Structure formats: C-alpha cells, structure tokens
Simulated assay, not measured.
Amino acid sequence: MLIWEFVVPGIPLSVNSKDPKKKRRWIERVRGCATGYLPDEGFPLAHDVSVSVTYFHGGPTDVDIDNILKRIIDGMYPEVLVDDAQIQDVSASRRDMQGGSFRNPPAIVLPNLISGEPFVYVAVYPAMTQEELLWIGKLQG
C-alpha cells in the first residue's frame, strides 16, 4: 500500500559532490517536490517505512544509483519523515526512458516519461515485516 509518492525533475546529485551550494539546492529541490502536495494530516510519518527510488534518464549516464540515495532521503525530512532512521528498507534502480516501454506507470510518472527529461520517482510504503522478508525466518535448532 503506497503511502506517498513524488517526482523530482532533473539529474540527481551524487553524494560524492563536494559543492555545498549544489548539495543544498538539490536537497531543497527534493524537499520542495516531496512536500508540494502533502495532505494536511498524517505527516510527518512517525512509523517505519520502505522507500523505493527510481532514476529515469534518457541515454548514457554516469550516475551511480547508490550515490544518489542519501541526498534524496535527506530531502524527505522533517516534513515527510520525522527521522531518516525510520527507513527500514530501500530499493533503488536506474532506468533508461529510451530503452523500452513501461506498462501501467503511476499517474504521477506519466507526464515525466512523455517529456523525456531526466527525473527521480520516489515512493514511500509501510516497512516490510520480517515475515515478508523470505530469507529471514525462524532459526531451526
């Protein structure tokens, strides 16, 4: 069950960027997109969550998916999340918009796919229980 989703236009900033102005601008962009349509009630979330991040680009890219997560997550609090320690699960992917077709994209993503401009799609879900993680089970003994 989806709790919240948002799109951030542009090429995500890597955690390796040393420019403090770029860092601050990207985090503020993420925050602005994350909070642009927040409902009046229920936020910030105070419970554990799972976060899914997908970077859509249009052709060759040198963006390492693991290096974009921190700045995106930093932009989600304190308005969306009370603390980033609430994130129990993270999934991240990078997809070429020119590399094929997309079936049933979320409505919020469709205009961005049509534009062909790079963007990041972020979805927040309830955290998975340990029972949902198939490899974590009861120890036999």
Score class of each variant (00 low, 15 high):
D66Q: 07
I72G: 03
I72N: 02
T61G: 03
D83N: 10
S50A: 15
I87T: 05
Q88G: 03
Y55K: 08
V63M: 04
V49I: 14
V51P: 05
T54F: 07
K70E: 15
D48P: 00
G58Y: 09
S52V: 09
I87E: 01
V53C: 13
A46T: 09
V63F: 08
I72W: 10
D74E: 15
Y37V: 09
Q88M: 05
I73K: 07
D64V: 15
D48I: 00
D40N: 11
K70L: 14
P60I: 10
G75T: 05
N67L: 12
E41Y: 03
L38F: 06
V80L: 12
D66I: 14
S50N: 03
E41T: 12
E79S: 13
E41I: 06
Y37K: 15
L69K: 04
L45Y: 02
P78V: 06
P39H: 04
Q88N: 04
V80N: 12
E79P: 02
V63Y: 07
V80S: 10
K70C: 11
G59V: 05
I72R: 00
L81S: 05
V80M: 10
D62P: 00
F56V: 03
Q86G: 01
S52D: 10
S50P: 00
I68G: 07
D40P: 06
R71S: 15
D66S: 13
G75D: 02
I87A: 04
V49Q: 04
D84A: 03
K70A: 15
P39T: 07
Q88I: 00
P44Y: 04
F56N: 07
Y37E: 15
I73W: 03
F43S: 11
L38W: 08
Q86H: 06
S52N: 10
S52M: 11
T61V: 09
M76V: 04
T61Q: 03
D62G: 13
F43K: 07
H47M: 05
D74K: 14
D64R: 11
I68M: 14
S50R: 08
Q88S: 09
V63P: 03
G59Y: 12
M76C: 15
A85Q: 02
V63R: 01
L81Q: 05
V80Q: 13
T54S: 10
